[in-house]
Design a binder for these strands. Structure first.
Length: 576
RNA sequence: GUGCCCGUAGCUCAAUUGGAUAGAGCACCAGCCUUCUAAGCUGGGGGUUGCGGGUUCAAUCCCUGCCGGGCACGCCA
């Protein structure tokens, strides 16, 4: 419809002001219903160029506008807006579209465009907590949105399974394992404290028995209260020395256990990845060394103070970054360069990374490395997600993985429900802080907007259940013409907006737009429901109204589905 | 200190990316259940869009200077 108006306007434009070309004007839905179905700013943009008042220009354009059976009236308003009012038939067309297209209503035709979206990518050193939940909900909804917008979406989780954090996890597991046999070495304060580590220790003991036991006297490393970091490193070295090749089994066990738990937490949260990309594999296959070599050949590396540096300042970064440390180990950054090089080699048209906002300083160096390797760094887009700040009433809940003091994603879902959690997370713009109040989410469960939307859907299902035994005809144009109330007119307009909302929410990486849209649509259904009886005796009118609410239910389902939220046919009675 | 993000109703947040009279929810006040689910609806109060300049037909949005808040500034990941 919008495109139809643009075509008409372009036609008028070229016949009246043939010399004007390349003008970008907008056709949009006005905020106020009294301003018609669509409005354009074309006349105001033209006024200066053609030296006439906007209203004169508007009049000239309207006179030259080709006739259209879809438009009932056109008027000039305000500073020079041209407002279009559609015919009833043009508005009601959307009902036919929805009933015919069903779950594919709003979905764009497939484009041949491959998009890689990487998100969560949390270190597998413990259960996912509520902070990760936001990235997970955002990434999954965005993936659904881009899929609906016609892209081929490939979802990936980057697993940091190499490096010191994993060593600390293995150490923590092993110490808990030893405790099973009564060997209590001092447990470092900066090792992983959580209950899940104790469970891994128990499982390891029951699975592999005494295989990794050592005596207390063999273990000579001591904690260092002055410098806990070097203390824990000595612990790790000692563990590796004593266990030898067995160290790998403990390491592997800890990693696999955590990955499995992470995977099932996400699946229960409605998040499923196409690929879990291992950092360790990247290193083992030589891709990190290859990436370093490639940077070196381009002359972007230099040695200083015993370390190897990438000259990222040449690409807009604040300072140069270390690629390989003095001790010979490559840095996390080195792996990340190789990982992104690998993404480019897999030939995606677009790559999206969803990172916590605390990583924003990291963007310049990654993009810098890509540029240095001659890659189009703007094919990579980084969407930053602010942390969710957890509150218990007025109290901020402290969060730290190491201390074991955190609320897990699973706890959250158990407390407030899967649907509420998914919805709540994406309700705010992703680059804004999200205040997540557990008390509120628990005690005021019924105030959560997700129930409001689900209830609208359930109400429609309930009406349809009652209507099942009543005669009804498939409504044609004659019946739909009976939908003349303001409620019905507004709902038809709202339904017609859905495909455009999908498109803009997708291109803006803004799933929250879907949530707001659905809330507005649900509000209109609730008002309609309270004001108008659907199951009336007049059969043509009834079938028209039922067709309209079936269309609403379909769009609510389609939208909720994108957000990973269920659309129940009836609501459970709220607890009092 | 430098860089990035943010500042909208009492609170939490939107605002079709520069459009017409800035909108919701919560909270507060007053109403609506013998009728398709009251997890709902109807009405009301509540704003100098942090402050000052600038750009133009038009600024919450763009530029600039302050004020206030967050994050990042490792041979950590």
């Amino acid at each position: 419809m919008k495109q139809h108006l643009i075509n008409l306007l372009n036609h008028a434009l070229s016949s009246v002001y043939a010399h004007v070309t390349g003008l970008e004007f907008s056709v949009e839905r006005p905020k106020q219903a009294s301003h018609g179905d669509y409005a354009t700013n074309l006349a105001m943009l033209l006024a200066k160029q053609v030296r006439a008042s906007p209203r004169e220009v508007a009049q000239a354009l309207i006179s030259a506008l080709p006739a259209s059976t879809l438009i009932s009236s056109i008027e000039i308003a305000g500073a020079g807006f041209i407002n279009f009012t559609l015919t009833h038939q043009a508005r009601a067309q959307v009902i036919h579209d929805i009933l015919q297209l069903k779950e594919s209503f709003g979905r764009a035709p497939r484009k041949t465009r491959k998009v890689l979206i990487e998100y969560v990518s949390a270190n597998p050193t413990g259960p996912l907590h509520v902070g990760h939940g936001r990235g997970a909900a955002y990434g999954a909804s965005l993936s659904n949105l881009l899929d609906a917008a016609g892209y081929d979406v490939y979802q990936e989780y980057y697993v940091n399974d190499a490096g010191r954090q994993m060593d600390i996890l293995a150490l923590s597991t092993w110490l808990r394992y030893l405790e099973q046999s009564g060997i209590n070495l001092a447990f470092p304060g900066n090792a992983y404290q959580g209950e899940y580590v104790k469970q891994m220790g128990e499982t390891l003991a029951s699975r592999d028995g005494t295989k990794y036991l050592v005596s207390e006297s063999e273990f000579t490393a001591k904690l260092n209260t002055e410098d806990p970091e070097s203390g824990i490193d000595r612990y790790i070295a000692e563990m590796k020395r004593l266990l030898g090749t067995n160290y790998g089994y403990v390491h592997q066990f800890s990693l696999e256990t955590q990955l499995a738990s992470c995977r099932s937490d996400l699946e229960d949260f409605g998040v499923k990845f196409d690929n879990w990309f291992s950092e360790e594999t990247l290193i083992a296959s030589g891709k990190v060394d290859a990436a370093i070599k490639k940077l070196g050949e381009g002359g972007h590396l230099y040695e200083s103070k015993g370390a190897l540096w990438f000259k990222s300042t040449a690409f807009g970064d604040e300072k140069d970054r270390v690629i390989r440390r003095e001790n010979g180990q490559t840095t996390y950054f080195a792996s990340d360069i190789a990982y992104h090089l690998d993404k480019f080699e897999r030939e995606f048209d677009q790559m999206i990374n969803i990172w916590g906002a605390d990583h924003h300083g990291y963007i310049a160096r990654v993009k810098g490395a890509l540029k240095a390797m001659g890659l189009e760094s703007n094919r990579l887009e980084i969407a930053l997600v602010q942390f969710a700040i957890l509150w218990r009433g007025k109290e901020k809940v402290p969060m730290s993985t190491r201390s074991g003091q955190f609320i897990t994603l699973r706890d959250l879902c158990n407390e407030v429900g899967h649907d509420a959690a998914r919805f709540f997370y994406i309700l705010r713009k992703s680059d804004q802080h999200l205040d997540f109040d557990l008390e509120l989410a628990k005690t005021q469960k019924n105030d959560n907007p997700v129930y409001y939307i689900q209830y609208a859907h359930a109400r429609i299902c309930s009406v349809m259940e009652l209507a099942r035994n009543q005669p009804s005809t498939i409504p044609g144009e004659k019946e739909l013409a009976l939908l003349t109330s303001p409620y019905e007119q507004n709902i038809m307009k709202r339904l017609a907006d859905y495909p455009a909302i999908i498109e803009s929410a997708g291109s803006d990486f803004s799933p929250h737009l879907i949530a707001y849209y659905l809330r507005d649509l649900a509000a209109e259904l609730h008002s309609y429901y309270n004001a108008v009886q659907f199951l009336v005796g007049d059969i043509p009118l009834r079938s028209a109204r039922l067709a309209l609410i079936i269309a609403i239910a379909q769009v609510l389902r389609n939208g909720l589905n994108l957000l990973g939220v269920s659309a129940p046919e009836r609501m459970q009675q709220p607890n009092d």
